[in-house]
Design a protein around this nucleic acid. Structure first.
Length: 445
RNA sequence: GUGGCUGUAGUUCAGUUGGUUAGAACGUCGGAUUGUGAUUCCGAAGGUCGUGGGUUCGAAUCCCAUCAGCCACCCCA
């Protein structure tokens, strides 16, 4: 006996069985459809990049998470950890030829060598969409609309997009003379919902060197509550006299009003001055999206506006706005919530191998259905009919076509609706035209 | 990366103060029923007790290491 190698996968890396992969592909298709409906075009880039590309602007935190190694030619390379950096490099190389505004979507795996948790993997798929080359707030508004349409198309009823604008906090920090400390302040504020005001206050004092007065003002801002209009009006006095803050407030006000005009319910888009987003490169609008029924899994879709995406790669000024759907995180959330339909049959129609002597007739019959665009699986062995139907039922087929010796002789077949159990005898003449019509009636269009 | 909890058939779990051949349910496969699936009945297969060491006459059970999952920190999709 040969020595066996234990089959296993790496920490944070997962296999996808058909039962998981079918809904996963459906999610991908849905994202793709929604993105395209707004005019975003697909692109792709290599998984592996020169290390300098990836570390160009990253913090030491992203450095720690980076999968890196030396390739066979002695080059220092790394696996991409998001799709934004590759977009920046891509835009720097091709923006002349693409023109602006450029809207792209990118659905691909990314890798981060961090510790795993529920909804946090080392290899996971992101579905990004970004609009670059325009500073228009219209693009920011569309970003929220896309996120809204996307989650709605996926069938999620209860979700909340938390929106904010970086300039609001920056404006306040300018007023307080703390603008140099914006990053530690943001880091601290990000913890507000989880850790509470006291912890944040301590951290503000420790890492940003804020005074008690400054801390009180910052927390006052972050603690603002109420509906969108109430928050906006409360922000006004806090920011008055500061150009940055007033601009942020104006942008947020414009977005809120536009979204409401378009018909986005106010409980779907909530101004939340507490969200800041960890990433330093956002400069304007920021958003995070939580599932109302499973907020603990974290944001399933986050994004925002950045002033200059590609400045480390090109002199070209490239502002952008976009968001990223965490597909695997969303998928595992949907799984946990039991929202996903369970099926592992990729084709709707099943044909049992019934009359052992007529294999080729079955193959030809299946071909007719496929030519009509109907997915068909033909069972490879002439087992007992009951067994084959049981197989079809467990796999989640919608329809079985019973075609045995008697049917062949009569030029007919039975179209059996596996959900209801009923069946109808139909002629197989004219390349199964009547069968195709019957199947189309049963299948949802 | 740091700390905590967990790890027994495909799945969900039992497994008495360490004591013979480790159990159940569901699932899978076969049969009852040589042309009709979710019920019922009968039967079978399936376990290096995550992995590797150690303590012991004896380890699923105690100890150490390691791997994986979950939780917190960190960060984030």
């Amino acid at each position: 006996m040969t020595e066996r190698i234990q089959p296993r996968t790496l920490k944070g890396f997962r296999d996808y069985l058909p039962a998981a992969m079918i809904p996963r592909e459906w999610l991908i298709d849905t994202a793709r459809r929604v993105y395209r409906s707004y005019g975003f075009s697909p692109i792709d880039t290599p998984a592996l990049e020169y290390l300098e590309i990836l570390t160009g602007k990253g913090s030491d935190e992203t450095d720690k998470q980076l999968y890196r190694f030396t390739d066979h030619g002695g080059r220092d390379v790394g696996l991409r950890f998001d799709l934004t950096i590759p977009l920046a490099r891509f835009a720097a190389q091709y923006i002349q030829e693409l023109g602006t505004p450029f809207k792209r979507y990118h659905i691909a795996n990314v890798w981060r060598g961090e510790n795993t948790q529920r909804g946090r993997y080392r290899e996971f798929m992101q579905c990004d969409f970004d609009t670059i080359g325009t500073e228009s707030i219209t693009a920011d508004i569309e970003m929220v609309l896309v996120v809204h349409d996307l989650l709605t198309a996926i069938g999620i009823e209860r979700f909340t997009i938390h929106g904010n604008n970086r300039r609001i906090l920056n404006g306040l920090l300018e007023k307080l003379g703390l603008i140099e400390q914006s990053i530690p302040v943001l880091r601290a504020l990000d913890k507000l919902s989880k850790a509470g005001a006291e912890v944040v206050a301590k951290e503000l004092s420790a890492t940003a060197g804020a005074s008690d007065d400054q801390i009180r003002t910052i927390l006052e801002l972050a603690a603002l509550e109420g509906n969108n209009e109430q928050i906006l009006s409360q922000l006004k006095p806090l920011l008055s006299g500061n150009a940055t803050g007033e601009r942020g407030l104006a942008e947020l006000t414009e977005m809120t009003s536009a979204l409401s005009t378009v018909g986005i319910k106010s409980e779907r888009f909530c101004i939340d001055v507490g969200i800041a987003r960890g990433l330093d490169y956002y400069t304007g609008t920021v958003l995070e999206t939580f599932l109302d029924d499973l907020p603990s899994i974290g944001s399933v879709c986050s994004g925002g506006r950045y002033d200059n995406l590609a400045e480390v790669y090109t002199k070209e000024h490239l502002p952008g706005v976009g968001a990223s759907l965490g597909l695997d995180r969303l998928h595992s959330a949907l799984e946990e919530l039991g929202t996903l339909e369970k099926t592992s049959a990729p084709a709707p129609v099943f044909i049992p191998f019934f009359d052992a002597g007529r294999r080729d007739d079955y193959l030809q019959f299946a071909a007719h259905l496929r030519q009509a665009g109907i997915g068909v699986e033909f069972f490879p062995e002439p087992k007992k009919l009951g067994k084959q139907l049981q197989f079809a039922d467990r796999r989640g087929f919608r329809i079985a076509i019973i075609l045995g010796t008697d049917e062949f002789a009569a030029g007919q077949c039975q179209v059996k609706d596996l959900a209801s159990g009923g069946s109808k005898t139909v002629s197989t003449a004219e390349n199964a035209a009547a069968v195709i019509a019957e199947i189309r009636q049963i299948l949802p269009s």
